[in-house]
Every structure is written in C-alpha cells, then in structure tokens.
C-alpha cells in the first residue's frame, strides 16, 4: 500500500507538471496570436522623381532612351540596352545626359569628372585581370577568361563592385561570391565613370522609388519570375554544377534593380519583359517583404521550409517526447 501511494504521488506530480507546462505554453502563445498587428503600418504617399540638383529636366512621355546610347553591334550592349521607356531626361550645363528614367526608376550616369580617379582605381584593382584597356583577357595565359568590361554600362560595374563580387577573390571559383565590398560606393561610382568613358552604354545606375511600389504586384511577379531559382522565400539555393542562386535577404534596392536589368552571371536578363514599374514593385517586395519576413508564427527558420520543420519535428518534437516517456516509464 505504501509503495502504491508513493507511485501515485509521483504520477500526481508529473500530471501537475504537465498541466502547468501546457497552461504556461498556451499563455505564452497568446501574445503572438492575438490577431497580428498590421505589418506595414505606414501608408506612404506617392512621390515624384526629380532630376539631380544642378541639372535641367526634360519631361517627354514620347521619348525613349537616346539611340546613341544603345549599340546594336555587340551582344553585351544589346543585353544591357533593355531599359524601359524614359519620360524624364536630365541634362547638365554642357548638354550631356546625366540621368533618364521615369517615376519608378531613375537611371543615373556617374559624373564624368570622376573618370580620372576611376582610371587610377581601375588600374590598381581591376587591370590585372580585366586588362589595362578593360577589353578583357583571353584564356591564353590564365586559368579562365576575364570578361571585357567596355560597353557594359555603369549599372553592371556598380553591381559587381558594390556586392563585393569584384575584385574577385579567387578567379577560378565557379561563381564570384557576394562578400564585404573592398571598394566603397564612391570608388565604385568612379570606376563606373571611367569604364563608361571608354565606351558609353546603358543602363545607368538605377535609383528605385520604392515608396510608390505596389507590393502585391511585386509578390505576384516575384512568384512568377524569380521563385524558380531564388525560392519563394528568397533564401536562395544551389543550382547545377556548383553554381547557386544567392540569398536575396541582403541586396539593396539599387542592387536588385541592377540584377534584374543586367542579369549577373547565370541569371537571365529581365529587360524587355519587365517594365520599370514592375522592376520597382519586385525590388520593393524583395527588399521589404523578403528581407524582413513577417514571421508572426514564431521562429522563422530562415524560410527553409519543410527541411527545417522536419528537423525540428524529429529532433525536438518526437525526441523530447521520447525522453519524456523515458522519464515517466521504467528503464529496468
């Protein structure tokens, strides 16, 4: 009888503990779930894009990108030519085009006065691989081909430098990885000015008016165009033969728009098929919703989905419950 009372007492404690646990957990859960607060509280008013200070603006809804800037001859140039229809052009005092675009995106050319500084930086940081004239190095004496940079347009140069891909750490890598940039944005601008001075080309460096973006359109376009490589949560994933689609959680709006317009590495160029409005919407969705996901359900696990969930269910869920049965039961 004594043993039985003792057993009963232990079990009673365990029942109690379990009850307290369940109650505490449910209480803990409530704040998470008491009807989530609106996620994007601030309603942003529409704003208009204006030309950089000291330039004159010309608004012309009929006007496209100046034909002189679009080369038809080389493949790279046409690849980069697909900037949309521009309703705004900005000219400096000497009558040179410094920016073009529309209310969604303004593509800016780096100031040509930066070119001399850019040349110096280029010779220090890039010439060893891409050649002193930026016309590339053929794979005659080195492991791989270093692409020509002439005529790629400022956006391309800016993207590869500001994402830290260039100067390349290891040219034999299958794909130059994003890393802490070695050159700062000003220096990147200068190099872009220099390369552009050798052979002017579009696109300019995009500055995206994300305030006016339509996130819903961005979500829809993202699911249709990007999720197949970057995954629906933007976490990125491995592609074939050592290449990969990187995570989109750190790119800035300018970098996202650049990536869409120039198509870095194995990524396709989204030029003709997406308007500037659509690029703006996707950019806003990527930098606002994907980079800061709405994880109202608790720990988000990096958007890894069922792989992470399965791991938790097996390691934590059933694992802990097996330990509990080990605790409650006899072990012989």
């Amino acid at each position: 009888m004594v043993t039985m009372q003792k057993t009963l007492k232990t079990y009673a404690t365990r029942v109690g503990l379990g009850l307290v646990g369940a109650a505490a957990l449910t209480t803990m859960a409530t704040p998470f779930l008491a009807g989530a607060a609106p996620v994007h509280a601030a309603e942003l008013g529409s704003s208009h894009v204006s030309c950089p200070a000291g330039t004159t603006a010309k608004y012309d809804p009929e006007y496209g990108v100046p034909a002189s800037l679009i080369g038809e001859d080389s493949k790279t140039k046409t690849k980069n030519a697909g900037t949309a229809y521009s309703s705004i052009q900005c000219y400096d005092a000497s009558g040179q085009l410094v920016a073009y675009g529309n209310d969604a995106i303004l593509y800016k050319f780096p100031a040509s006065s930066l070119a001399p500084l850019g040349e110096k930086l280029y010779q220090q940081n890039c010439a060893s691989c891409h050649g002193t004239k930026a016309d590339g190095v053929l794979p005659t004496y080195s492991a791989g081909a270093y692409p020509a940079l002439r005529g790629l347009g400022p956006a391309t140069i800016n993207f590869w430098i500001t994402t830290g891909r260039m100067p390349a750490a290891d040219p034999k890598e299958v794909q130059a990885a994003r890393k802490q940039p070695r050159l700062n944005p000003f220096q990147a601008n200068a190099i872009a000015a220099y390369v552009n001075s050798l052979e002017p080309a579009t696109p300019g460096i995009p500055s995206v008016n994300v305030k006016d973006a339509n996130l819903t359109a961005g979500q829809t376009l993202y699911a249709l165009n990007c999720a197949a490589c970057h995954t629906i949560t933007g976490g990125g994933d491995a592609l074939a033969q050592g290449t990969y689609a990187p995570s989109l959680h750190v790119a800035t709006p300018t970098q996202v728009a650049e990536a869409l317009r120039i198509g870095p590495g194995n990524m396709p160029v989204f030029s003709g098929n997406l308007t500037d409005d659509e690029v703006r919407d996707i950019t806003a969705y990527v930098t606002e919703s994907l980079a800061k996901p709405t994880d109202i359900g608790g720990v988000g696990m990096g958007g890894l989905g069922p792989v992470a969930e399965g791991f938790i269910a097996l390691a934590l869920g059933i694992g802990i419950l097996m330990l509990v049965s080990f605790w409650v039961g006899e072990r012989q």
Partner: peptide, 29 residues
Amino acid sequence: FKTQGFLFMVLGACALLGALAQINPVWQF
C-alpha cells in the same frame, strides 16, 4: 494518472512548438 500526465506532456509539446516555431507560413508563399 500516468497516462493523463503524458497526455498533457504531448499537448504541451505541441503547444510549445505551435507557439514558438513557425510552420508553413503560407502568406509568404
């Protein structure tokens, strides 16, 4: 009583995971 305690343990584990670990956030998809 033992099994009732165990019921609460299982309930507690599900509540804990349900409250703290996000699963299938369909709005993101």
